[in-house]
Amino acid sequence: MKKINFDKVFSFILVSLLGLFILRVLYSVAGEEAARFTADHYINFGVEETSAINIVTAILFDYRAFDTLGEATVIFTAASVVALLLPRHEASMLKTEFTPVVQQSIAFVLPFLWIISIFLIAYGHLSPGGGFSGGVIISAISILIIFTYGYRYMTRRFNVKKLSLIEDIGALAFLTIGLAGIIAGGTFLANSQVGIYPGTPGELLSGGLMPLSNFAVAAKVGTGLSVIFLSLARED
């Protein structure tokens, strides 16, 4: 006869009530037909105004580029906090090594991943992707290098200082791109309002400053996540 854990029963009842409440709220939200003024504007005039086919990228890097700046700052802050909290040689990874089969295959895969990431970044305004997805793939490359060839091999090529330098360069590039909007006669991070090289929609070089800011954000996100992982997984 097991003793009944009253904490678990009480939390189960509480959580079930919460789930029913959430379900009720969600169905009442879904029922009403809300007018979507901003979404209709983005869908109807987005391609014409920003000359980017991917509307999500157009929102992220054109209409609300200032929010994206804050979003990139969150990753910067997280990387700084994690690197500050964990001093050198504190945590340790488990010591199982991959065989040469895995190491050779990953050496074969890595150029493929570089090509995918650069494709995603450069075609960010034409296809799903953009700076954030490409940056995640770049950080996946660094995770693979750390896991297969070891922490020392990674730090011999890219240590935390070098990666932080690339991250700072990415942030500065994004701010400089923002200043270009002021120089052209608009507000900070203005892109299509001031008409910077719109190009024809659907071509690689279009959308004004959007490809440049994609590359800046990708450098920032990729190196930021790499710094976070490098700080969390110290092997000694």
Binding site: F98, T99, V102, S105, I106, F108, V109, F112
Partner: peptide, 18 residues
């Protein structure tokens, strides 16, 4: 197809080895 052909056997090998 090329990507799947490279990666899936590697994953199987690493899982079995571990």
């Amino acid at each position: 197809i090329i990507f799947l052909l490279i990666t899936t056997p590697v994953v199987g090998h690493a899982l079995t080895r571990s």
